[in-house]
Nucleic acid binder design. Structure first.
Lengths: 337, 337
DNA sequence: ATGAAAGCGCTAACAT
DNA sequence: ATGTTAGCGCTTTCAT
């Protein structure tokens, strides 16, 4: 099982081909300045010896690694994995690899990852995190970075691609109101990112716009750092048991909404007859839930694409727009029929 | 937005601290051989200038990058994202970063990624792929690699961590038989990985063991490269429309099983009364489906953990066991009640 | 058309 | 205790 003999280097290729290392470099990079015969000879040696260029060395010399760092809260959540998949693909198309880091909404972990990425000298960073606690300017130094979906409060002039969360919250809530709900609960996290808070603001605005009060008893907070449907299920079960009255639920994301759906079913409460439910993200969970979940559709593929484009622009030293807001729309399904 | 001044190097730290570069290196790596006063001076300079060591250079020198490459078929599938999350965490704990590559079951893409990983000189590779078409020995050179969940047919002495797929297929099928099913369909991919084929073999063995014939009409194949529940839904809908009779379904994974569940509901077929369904993976989809899906539980966290341990052993030059089979068990839920 | 040599940022002998 | 130096594998002037 022991494996040892290290890969052949450019110098060795040069020796085997009887040319200088510079010539090998020229051939490999197609820079011209070599005869057809030399090219063939060099390529033959490369082929026969399975030479694969050492990008680490190349990167050191060129001062760029062709690697992008990506920080996500939870790759296990369909919304983020879709985002990550798309981003990875988009970067791969441009010749970049992606280092994916899960910070699980843990600021400390996130900061550590950021340092790691910088020490690896990634060419840029895609960051989905609203919880940076330290002074970024100092740590980040000069790595191009773009925030996607979430961003820290004090992110001065760092570009971001976000969705229209406030409008999403408003759309969801207004939809519930139109369906006749008057006591609408909002399920969210304890200390959410700004983006998520905006969904709550949209919710409150919609309520206010229709003369409804935002009853604090209807704000249901989940403590966990990472969203798991079981926690939502248990938390809502407790709320139901406590006798709080509600006829609609707006959940901050689909994972929570699905947990809510299960808790309602456990309690024998019918959806949508007794309680209507709206989620956020329009992820796979919304489609496979029963009843199928009405959800605020976002466009993770588009967000990933824009994020990549922005980051690549930044890397190339171009100017980019600071805030790129991707619209949302409501996907109406059975849970609010 | 333009960012330029590059990060400070070790040489600059040395100059600012009035010591040699070697001393800085010693301080940073805590190798001793410097006075307390020197240490303080160096650390002060590092602190004040936000020096972050260049791992690319360090890696070049040390001939190791502290980076692991990971090839997955579809990070969007809960099973794989759970595996990836756990692997990333385990490696992070050991000081490694992980480059995640999605090959979407595309051999060409997979091969390309493999080359990229090798050119980046990753210290090892975790590979979930059964579709390598080329001669690995040549391309892989000497990178330690371990296959998880899937492995190519000709992977000679490359270690793997897999689950007991054959037994899983048998368990699922026998369970359906016990519940009274006699015409059990098997939903799978057209050209599946060996691991998946084994689930089919388990299915056939179970049928044979109970004197049931494996009707070719009951083998339902999905063409897509990546498993999407919509494809499964549509494919099964067509089968139903064609009048094929069945009273049980064993799906090669939960995504497909959930698609089947939806198709059955669309057709007004009751689960489990008319048709019973069993999935594979016991992923989140099984838990949130309605009816909740009976599924063959695997242990992606455990598989990831073992895979990491094995790879790290390999990297350290130790011997490892060639095949590590993780047991499976049946999680019985409403879909087969 | 080709080679020699400097240097990217670091570590690790080998000095002193 | 600290410095000097030779590379790691590459790209890139600058010669020839």
């Amino acid at each position: 099982m022991a494996q040892s003999n290290k890969p052949i280097s450019m110098r060795e290729v040069a020796e085997l081909a009887g040319v200088s290392i510079a010539t090998v470099s020229r051939v490999i990079n197609g820079l011209g300045g070599f005869s057809e015969e030399t090219r063939k000879r060099v390529e033959k040696v490369i082929e026969e010896n399975g030479y694969i260029a050492n990008q680490a060395a190349k990167g050191l010399r060129e001062a760029r690694t062709r690697t992008i760092g990506m920080i996500v809260p939870d790759i296990t959540n369909d919304f983020f994995s879709t985002l990550a998949l798309q981003a990875e693909r988009a970067f791969a198309d441009e010749g970049y690899s992606v280092l994916i880091c899960n910070d699980a909404n843990d600021a400390e972990r996130g900061e550590h990852y950021l340092r790691t990425l910088i020490s690896k000298r990634v060419d840029g960073i895609i960051c989905i995190s609203g919880r940076t606690t330290f002074d970024e300017d100092e740590v980040l130094g000069n790595v191009p970075i773009v925030y996607v979906d979430r961003f820290p409060e004090r992110s001065h002039d760092i570009p971001r691609v976000i969705s229209d969360d406030l409008r999403g919250g408003r759309l969801a809530t207004e939809h519930l109101i139109e369906r006749g709900c008057t006591r609408i609960a909002f399920m969210t996290g304890t200390h959410s990112a700004l983006s998520v808070q905006n969904r709550g603001i949209g919710y409150e605005e919609a309520l206010a716009g229709h003369g409804l009060a935002a009853d604090p008893a209807l704000r249901i907070e989940l403590k966990g750092r990472v969203r798991r449907f079981q926690e939502a299920r248990e938390t809502l079960a407790a709320v139901i048991a406590s006798g709080v009255d509600f006829d609609g639920i707006f959940a901050m994301n689909d994972v929570i909404a699905v947990g809510a759906l299960l808790a309602l079913r456990d309690a024998g409460i019918r959806v949508p007859e007794d309680v209507r439910v709206v989620g956020f993200d329009d992820s796979i969970y919304a489609s496979i839930a029963t009843p199928a979940l009405t959800s605020v559709r976002r466009f993770p593929e588009e967000m990933a694409k824009r994020g990549c484009e922005t980051l690549l622009s930044l890397i190339e030293g171009n100017d980019v727009e600071l805030e790129d807001v991707i619209p949302v729309e409501l996907a109406v399904r059975e849970s609010t029929a």
